[in-house]
Amino acid sequence: MPRSNRPRGRKTARGGFDDEGLDVERLTFGWRHTESRRGVTYTVQPISAANARKSYVCPGCGREVLPGVEHVAVWRADSIFGDDAALADRRHWHTHCWKIA
């Protein structure tokens, strides 16, 4: 018997499939999380190669983060000026540079 390519997810009580566990924003933009470095808490947002459309200067190595290169955007999670100011001050790092910082 030929193999079926039909998606097999969890079935709901009504017979349909449960898509509640899929968050499109999380799938396309990565998983935002917090990390602590030297007593400061940072929010780290992975940026996929497909979503990297601009170039930035990495504060870790001083080299350019080119468009199409996977990297991370980092900002303070506990800014005294508020979330909007912290997000405006975010920096784009090479993933490796952030890991060794």
Rank of each mutant, 00 (worst) to 15 (best):
N5C: 05
E20L: 12
W75K: 02
A88I: 10
D84V: 09
A77M: 02
S36F: 06
V69Y: 04
K11W: 07
D89C: 08
V57G: 06
G60A: 01
I100R: 15
T41A: 13
C61M: 04
H94V: 01
G30N: 05
R63G: 07
M1N: 10
G15E: 09
V57W: 07
C97P: 01
A77C: 03
G82C: 09
R32G: 06
R3N: 11
E35F: 02
F17E: 15
V69F: 03
N51P: 03
A49D: 10
P59Q: 06
G82D: 05
F81T: 05
V74K: 02
V44Y: 00
P46H: 00
E70Y: 02
R37Y: 03
P7W: 11
P67L: 03
P46D: 01
R6P: 00
G15I: 08
L27G: 13
W98E: 05
G16V: 06
V40T: 14
R6N: 10
D19S: 10
Y56V: 02
V40D: 06
I80N: 08
R37V: 12
H71K: 07
K54M: 08
K99Q: 13
V44R: 01
A13G: 12
F17Q: 15
E20D: 14
T43N: 06
L22P: 06
N51V: 04
T28G: 13
L27K: 10
S4E: 11
N5M: 10
S48A: 11
R26K: 10
S55I: 09
A50V: 09
A13R: 10
P46R: 01
F17R: 14
P2H: 07
S79G: 05
R8D: 14
L66S: 12
V40G: 03
D78K: 03
T28R: 15
W31N: 15
D19A: 11
V65C: 05
L87W: 05
K99T: 15
S4W: 09
D19Y: 14
G9W: 12
V65K: 03
M1Q: 10
F29K: 12
F17D: 15
E25I: 08
H71E: 00
S55W: 14
R3T: 15
A101E: 14
R14A: 15
D83Y: 08
D23V: 08
R3Y: 12
D89Q: 13
W98R: 04
A77T: 01
S55A: 14
W93M: 01
G9A: 13
D78L: 07
H33S: 12
Y56R: 05
V57I: 15
R38Y: 11
S55K: 12
L87V: 07
S36W: 07
R38N: 15
R53W: 11
W98T: 05
A86T: 04
R10V: 12
H92W: 00
Y56P: 04
P67I: 04
A73V: 06
V69C: 07
S48C: 06
L66Q: 15
S4I: 14
A85Y: 11
V40I: 13
C58V: 01
W31H: 15
R91E: 10
P46Q: 01
Y56M: 02
T41S: 11
L66D: 10
A13M: 14
D18R: 04
V72M: 03
V24D: 13
T12C: 05
Y56H: 12
H33I: 06
H71L: 03
A86P: 00
T12V: 05
R90M: 02
K54P: 08
